[in-house]
């Protein structure tokens, strides 16, 4: 257990540190990168809980795809940090109250009766939770799985219908016309007398 505990505390500390950096650093690009780090630390903690499939999906989907897209957006937008930070002090008291309430509640729940949280199941090395997930996903949770698919379809439709614009007067290249162009459509020979030297 010793090694596992070291890993747990190491990556939990990393998770908390990087998560707090996400909201405190000034540079949004750095914040996004810290979010990547916190996802990664979180994935390691999940691995310790034997949720291998979820851990790998977290790295592949969130770190690999979502956060990279996010970084692109952050880099392309011109975000004015000073304006974003303007309300920080005025919202701080409310934020602290909410955070304290949440923390207090979590502590109360966890410390109240810990027995509910100690019954985690351990499996042998040959147990594949990918297969187990797949098995329930396509049988017990078939209905929910289908609905989730429909939600994704709606997301696609919504995104396209909100962003697709056909503007008739935008300027763009017409390659077939460019290739078919003849010399005399572009170059005009002008005959003129050479200037005489005086």
């Amino acid at each position: 257990m010793g090694f596992e505990k070291i890993i747990f505390y190491l990556f939990s500390a990393l998770l908390i540190m990087s998560a707090s950096m996400v909201i405190t650093v000034r540079n949004p690009v750095k914040a996004a990168l810290f979010l990547v780090l916190s996802f990664f630390a979180c994935a390691v903690v999940w691995l310790l809980m034997e949720a291998e499939f979820l851990a790998i999906v977290l790295v592949l989907v969130y770190v690999g795809a979502v956060m990279v897209l996010f970084l692109f957006v952050v880099m392309m937008l011109d975000i004015n940090i000073e304006r974003l930070r303007a309300g920080f002090i005025s919202y701080l008291p409310v934020g602290i109250v909410v955070a304290l309430m949440m923390a207090g509640m979590l502590i109360w729940i966890v410390s109240g009766d810990g027995s509910a949280f100690n019954n985690s199941v351990t499996h042998n090395a040959d147990y594949s939770n990918t297969r187990e997930l797949g098995r329930v996903l396509y049988t017990d949770f078939l209905y929910s799985f289908e609905i989730a698919a429909v939600i994704l379809l709606v997301a696609i439709i919504a995104a396209i219908s909100l962003t697709l614009r056909r503007r008739p007067n935008t300027k763009h290249q017409k390659i077939e016309n460019q290739i078919a162009v003849k010399r005399n459509e572009r170059v005009r020979m002008v005959k003129m007398k050479a200037e005489e030297k005086k």
Binding site: F141, Y143, S144, I147, A148, V150, I151, V154, A155, I157, A158, S161, L162, R165
Partner: peptide, 23 residues
């Protein structure tokens, strides 16, 4: 609980998009 939540999300997502339809 799961289907209830997913149904709600399906409804909400459609509504958000419909509100924004007039771009």
């Amino acid at each position: 609980l799961l289907t209830l939540y997913l149904g709600l999300e399906l409804l909400s997502l459609s509504l958000y998009a419909m509100v924004a339809l007039q771009r």
